[in-house]
Design a protein around this nucleic acid. Sequence first.
DNA 1: GACTACATGTAAGACGTTACATGATTTA
DNA 2: TAAATCATGTAACGTCTTACATGTAGTC
Lengths: 176, 176
Amino acid sequence: MSDVTLAPTARVILGMVRMGKRTGYEIKQLVDVSARFFWTTSYGQIYPELKRLEKQGLVRGEADPTGGRSRTVYSLTRAGDAALDAWLSSPDELVWEMRDEGLLKLFFSEGRDPAELRDHLRSVRERSEAVAARLRELGPVAEGAGPGPPMVREFGIALNEWLAGWWKRAEESIDA
Amino acid sequence: MSDVTLAPTARVILGMVRMGKRTGYEIKQLVDVSARFFWTTSYGQIYPELKRLEKQGLVRGEADPTGGRSRTVYSLTRAGDAALDAWLSSPDELVWEMRDEGLLKLFFSEGRDPAELRDHLRSVRERSEAVAARLRELGPVAEGAGPGPPMVREFGIALNEWLAGWWKRAEESIDA
DNA sequence: GACTACATGTAAGACGTTACATGATTTA
DNA sequence: TAAATCATGTAACGTCTTACATGTAGTC
């Protein structure tokens, strides 16, 4: 069927459009609020990618201004629906990347001032605590979109609490 | 002092050089073996960056062929040493990025075949198990470089075991 | 003699962020 | 009326991966 290879940002966009997020602006909002901890994107990616997807026939955009404010609402075409399904069911190796400067600093910590290292461990821990807290306060998001979004949210909370705990123990092991 | 802003790859390079990794090749080896799960890099980044760092006066390269095989060994200059220290002690926000296609697929899983979802959760779990196993087998690395490298390795093992456990539970919650 | 490891590099292209630019609508 | 939110977009720049290109040294 659709032998289109989806660019990374295209995957989020198609998924979000199927979820009912219809404008570039709405897509960005939901990514920021619910996926920020494992996936980011920017307007500089979203708007050009929406145009590319339209050119490829995977989405269809229609002008739908609210008053004098221009606005384009997108929906999936049949080909877009198929391309999203194809990606979701493909057994390809899943991208998993982590880039953690905190770990890098820990890696290179030989000979550094222990007080500095302690501060650094604390700030890394506090970041995870803040992310967990934000996700907890946020509450369920994207309701009516099945069990995926709540599970991902729970994952985010649990992961960041686990991370905070690890950094806490690391901090204490420096003191000891 | 050194108001040089280090590019991401420059940070790893300076740290690795201080650790005694003297060639581009050696730097890549250690990154692959011990930092792969939280930081990646490629020759296409390392060699040009070493040249840039030399031009900036942060490292010094000397030709040191082994037989007829060309080889350049690098060491930190005083400015390079200072730049690395400045980065290590800077209170700047630490880069933390995660890009997880497995979570993205879970996020968009509404209406998908449960069997497919189960397979997908299993493959994500297996990947974490493999990473944990590799780090465990690897044993301590970069000995004599302080407590950093072993702590980072323990972090990697613990994180990946935690991840594997989470995906395992998610799998079971689908079955239930 | 073949394979693996050591060793270095470039070029093209993909991907991504940031800063800039613009303007309407709604809420405080 | 000021600020926040809705809404769209571009240009420049930074970063990174992949594929290509080349050759030596050591091991099986």
